[in-house]
């Protein structure tokens, strides 16, 4: 479903210099599977999530990335979203003045229009969002507030998952979804993610720690260091990392 082949990517730093971050990363995530990417800070995990979704300043300098056979590198972020790529942000962005409910309706209908589908009517949308909000324990009151404004870290992550439940993407990238969550919030968010597991949907779970993977059991775990995948294995690899740390992989990648 998602195929990344020898991907090289550079990022423009604040002083205007180009810094290579991904250095020949290869990864295949078939439909129906959940893959985890674990790695130390600075290994390029977040860069991978941004280059896949098309953020400005993240330039592909080599290799390829395709989604269901379609080359992603030339597509605008909104075009990738309409194909079904969804990023749950590590730091969800606050948008003052735009109510969450308005934002989500705009997003859903923009995606549907881009795919040549009919827009969802206001009553249909309300029914949909009520049902999904209930599933995650989000009040309608929260949905009327501006996107992420004044929400706690846990509430923001819960809203990210709620947005995914409404938009029903084909592929989800979860970037450090566990950061800033207490144990109850972690459970709610993980339940939401598990509800989205489906034979036709792929997921990439990016995390620094193993604890999220206690709740969302991956099919495959990849270890990333210095801009590439250095080892892949089953869920037991995550436990091994938790016990032994990243040090030995840092040596291998250098």
């Amino acid at each position: 479903m998602l195929n990344i082949e020898n991907l090289h990517c550079q990022v423009e730093t604040q002083d205007g210099e180009e810094k290579p971050i991904l250095k020949g990363l290869s990864l295949d995530v078939p439909a129906g599977e959940v893959h985890a990417i674990m790695g130390p800070n600075g290994s390029g995990k977040s860069t991978l999530s941004y280059v896949l979704t098309g953020r400005d300043g993240y330039e592909v300098t080599g290799g390829s990335m395709t989604f269901e056979g379609e080359d992603l590198s030339e597509l605008e972020p909104e075009e990738r979203a309409a194909l079904g790529l969804y990023l749950s942000f590590q730091y969800p962005v606050e948008i003052p003045g735009v109510p969450t409910i308005t934002f989500l309706k705009e997003a859903l209908n923009a995606q549907r229009t881009a795919r040549g589908e009919d827009e969802v009517s206001a009553p249909e949308f309300m029914k949909l969002i009520r049902e999904k909000a209930k599933q995650l324990g989000v009040s309608m009151d929260m949905l009327k507030r501006p996107v992420n404004v004044g929400f706690s870290g846990g509430e923001k992550k819960r809203m990210e998952i709620l947005q995914a439940l409404v938009l029903e993407p084909k592929f989800m990238i979860l970037d450090e979804t566990d950061s800033g969550l207490d144990i109850d919030a972690l459970k709610t968010v993980s339940d939401g993610v598990n509800a989205l597991r489906a034979p036709e949907r792929g997921m990439l779970v990016i995390t620094h720690y193993q604890r999220l993977l206690d709740h969302i059991t991956p099919d495959v775990v990849h270890i990333m260091a210095n801009g590439k995948i250095v080892k892949s294995g089953g869920p037991e690899l995550a436990k091994e990392l938790e016990a032994e740390g990243y040090d030995k992989y840092l040596g291998e990648a250098a």
């Binding site: 605008e76 909104e78 969800p92 948008i95 934002f103 997003a107 859903l108 938009l167």
Partner: peptide, 10 residues
């Protein structure tokens, strides 16, 4: 970028 990632055109 956040809005575009959700599918809203630029």
């Amino acid at each position: 970028f956040y809005m575009r990632q959700r599918g809203i055109p630029a």
